[in-house]
Design a protein around this nucleic acid. Sequence first.
DNA 1: ACGAATATAGAATCTAGATTCGATGTGTCT
DNA 2: AGACACATCGAATCTAGATTCTATATTCGT
Lengths: 221, 221
Amino acid sequence: MTTHTPRARLVHNIRVLRRADEVIGAAARVFAERGYHGTTTQAIADVLGMRQASLYYYFPSKEAALEEVCARGTDGFVEAAERVMREDMPPLKKLELLIASHLAQFETMPDYVRVFINERRYLPDASRKRVGRKSRRIERMIEEVIQAGIDSGSIRPGADAHLAMLAVLGMCNAVINWREVDRGRDTRRIAAIFAQLVANGLARNGSPPKHRGQPKSEPMP
Amino acid sequence: MTTHTPRARLVHNIRVLRRADEVIGAAARVFAERGYHGTTTQAIADVLGMRQASLYYYFPSKEAALEEVCARGTDGFVEAAERVMREDMPPLKKLELLIASHLAQFETMPDYVRVFINERRYLPDASRKRVGRKSRRIERMIEEVIQAGIDSGSIRPGADAHLAMLAVLGMCNAVINWREVDRGRDTRRIAAIFAQLVANGLARNGSPPKHRGQPKSEPMP
DNA sequence: ACGAATATAGAATCTAGATTCGATGTGTCT
DNA sequence: AGACACATCGAATCTAGATTCTATATTCGT
């Protein structure tokens, strides 16, 4: 630690953190693109215009960098989801918002999320469990909402909340690996369509008729 | 080629192919487990109880092995899907069968499929395109069926066939990465549930009502 | 301007892992 | 039995990539 004045220490720490962020960000970017094992520390350094050995000033090992990236990748998710959970609204609406906030993360921190989704399995046991705990929290939230829907009658009674949750997550997480062209279609629109699909399906009789004044008007521009 | 008697040649060739299959199978297994870049040729050899250098008798490079695995991973898909497409039935029913046959592949050749889904991106451009062509065929088939549903009126007119196709595929392909516990639930059941979800959604009024009433009474939370 | 801590460079190390090559074993046909 | 093609081994090569260490440059508070 610095032995300087408190303010000095603070200023320094901020700078340090900022640079550290850049480094982790660069790692995230390369991990996302080439996969963890396909990434060389050299490639990360290149992104930063830095000597490869200097990276080790910021993280103790490539593996540690991966864990950090994964951790940040989940944090956003969890916070966003928890915010939604605190709201008071019908389960299906909540589910819609959960999907939207989940997909929103893909726009906010695409690299981190992609690494979390595709590469977390390469973490050593200990950290994988740590990260897994967080991702299970998201799963549980979605499942809870679905179950609440079943209990309150808005969701078909026979539904399997767990499988449905996995289906929804699978569908959403796939987006991060879509080709640019497809992901390009604005995330909000995708979220809306997904929510609609999950709620009412594709079948024609699945959606309520328009004259019923349902706030379920066609997708939108 | 052998200069021996035809029958001898045949017998030999069969044995060769069989062994080659084992080798590619072993590669598939390890690729699936550790990812392409995380896989060492040593690990593949271990599975076979063979010296690592001997592998090169069966494939010219690790990359070639990946391509072979990916190729086999798609072949199954395409064939199964094409068989379904040839049948004559309403689009939604076809979609259901497409989902089922897709998931069935996950049971038949899980390793190959997993590698195809997770690792094809590491193929060199040329082979990635080759493999991509096949996977796009599957995409097109699904999209076609959905479009047919829209045209024939069984699927909601506003639906976006392309996005819906991506959603369905994302949902299905996620299954291959589920934890054992979750994938354990018999594939047929999962397929049925997915089909139901895609067709009618989770909402209670989503399933074909017995009579024409669509009481979408908002559940009071 | 000075000194303490920080940030980066440079060179060196050390290992694992892909690929090559020649030798050897093994079964099969004539 | 002898020849031949196939299958595997063993050793060697060759390189890339992670990590370590030491030296230098930079920055900031005083």
